[in-house]
Design a binder for these strands. Structure first.
Lengths: 113, 113
DNA sequence: TTGACATATATAGATTGCCGATATATAATG
DNA sequence: CATTATATATCGGCAATCTATATATGTCAA
């Protein structure tokens, strides 16, 4: 993550699933897309993404298929499954709960005995 | 963390430093306080906190001193240093940047080529 | 046409953050 | 007197991410 390594972890799968909510994407594209949408905050590494995608596939959250572009390059597209959609909802809820809690703590104390 | 293990990591030191911004606290107290302020979202484990505190001490972010309560129990209080205060500012900024970026991604795409 | 670079996917090894289990000692409670 | 709550501490382990490396192909400039 580089900008503040280890600030957050585990949210990458949430973000990747979120990207796939709209359209099927291939790996390299996700890296770019995530970077773009986050205004350069998320610079996901290939070495992080591909194992992560394999994991999501094993869990049945995504399915994969290959497709060759006009350029000749073969790309491995990922598609969000029904289960993946459910997992996404749960992860979004968890994130919101977490972020709100951090917000409350940072907002400042309120009566510390 | 239990409720969604591994959603976030590394933010614990941020939260602990934040607690110490107002008052010196001892470890056990931080666990309770964090739980209270976060409406039960953060249930920091002792096995997580104490090593974390030792690490913050090594980095010079906190100093520690012992004090025996009327009860007779000896408690190890932690005090935020100047360096710790600076580190806290940085971590708060990093968190805000990160949380905003996640928010943008979750808010939904906006034109995916 | 050859060499550098971007695209595209993949794996191995290391680091790190947090947890569970466990240990210790004292105070409060029953 | 025994159990529970307080209080601190360490160890082993898992999971998420990174770095480094490997591979193959397409594009562009020298």
């Amino acid at each position: 993550m580089e900008l503040e390594k280890s600030l957050v972890s585990g949210s990458m799968s949430l973000l990747v699933l979120k990207l796939l909510e709209e359209t099927d994407l291939y790996g390299y594209q996700m890296i770019d897309e995530l970077r773009r949408r986050s205004d350069d905050t998320f610079r996901l590494k290939a070495g992080t993404l591909y194992p992560l995608l394999h994991g999501l596939e094993e869990k049945g959250f995504v399915t994969a298929y290959e497709q060759t572009a006009e350029s000749g390059k073969t790309r491995r597209y990922y598609h969000l499954t029904r289960q993946g959609r459910d997992a996404l909802r749960e992860k979004e809820d968890a994130w919101n709960t977490y972020a709100r809690a951090v917000g409350r703590v940072l907002k400042g104390g309120a009566c510390l005995a």
